[in-house]
Write a protein that binds this DNA or RNA. Structure first.
Lengths: 147, 147
DNA sequence: ATAATTAAGGACAAAGTTATCCTTAATTAT
DNA sequence: ATAATTAAGGATAACTTTGTCCTTAATTAT
């Protein structure tokens, strides 16, 4: 469904939402180990989430790391997707037709549309906080590595 | 949603289903022009659909080209997706977690599952023939090029 | 048989994505 | 102030996907 970069972005953000606060910042090492992602690549992604879209926060230096505020935890999952440039995927024609539309629908259009609307609804109503809460006591991420 | 290769595969197959019969085969030139895809790349894709999965048929030589039989027109859209290796996408975790499952669900699992099931249902019930019929008198494909 | 036409298939090129490494900047502790 | 720690950012490498080109094989028409 999404690119690897977006998967890492989602996992990292959820993890940071669970554990990262202004006085308990999390380093890229811990994050990438927890969510099973390549550290440097993940760092780039977090930079983007921070710089362009201000979904997460960070500070350099000892005891530095990443964290989130109450405010950004309330953002919908879609905010992460937007930051990762996955917006197109949410309104694109399944057949990749540029001109597919209500008035000139491709043969999948009407049925696919209904499904896509549910996806959008899901990503817009679920917040980062919701996802963090749903896994607070689980080890969904940690267990990813050990097959 | 899908790769470009898969988009071309879907469009090409629908187009062939509409126009290609054993005594009216369609050349790669006409196909790629109609569906707005790179000819050589599309040729490779059609080779695969032919050779590995026998969704379409072809013959070389003058008046050669691609066509479909009644039988393969009745195949579900999913057959094309399988041929294009998009199967993984239909049962993958949104977050890309290897271990996400019913017993150890990621925080998107339960809601995403419902949507994914609809997608699978759609691709399994819609046949290539259905899609061909739905656009028989339209110029959905041809119009794709001219913006 | 020969020439013409069309798909098959191999080699390769271009572009995009994923991933690594190294240097710089920011921050903290001593 | 200095040293240590951590993210920021640039350069580049590895890999995948997308796309092109050329030669070969198959088929048809003459």
């Amino acid at each position: 469904m999404f690119s690897k970069a977006t998967e890492y972005a989602l996992r990292a953000t959820i993890f940071i939402a669970q554990k990262g606060t202004e006085d308990n910042k999390i380093g890229i090492g811990e994050i990438s180990k927890a969510i099973d992602s390549p550290p440097s690549f993940t760092a780039k992604i977090l930079q983007a989430l921070r710089k362009n879209n201000k979904i997460i926060w960070s500070v350099s230096g000892p005891n530095g790391g990443f964290y989130m505020t109450e405010k950004t935890r309330k953002l919908p999952v879609r905010a992460i997707l937007e930051a990762m440039g996955e917006n197109e995927m949410l309104d694109k024609c399944v057949l990749g037709l540029a001109k597919c539309s209500e008035t000139k629908p491709c043969p999948m259009h009407s049925k696919y549309k209904i499904i896509k609307e549910q996806l959008i609804e899901l990503f817009e109503t679920k917040t980062i906080q919701h996802l963090a809460d749903d896994t607070k006591n689980g080890d969904v991420f940690i267990s990813n590595k050990s097959k």
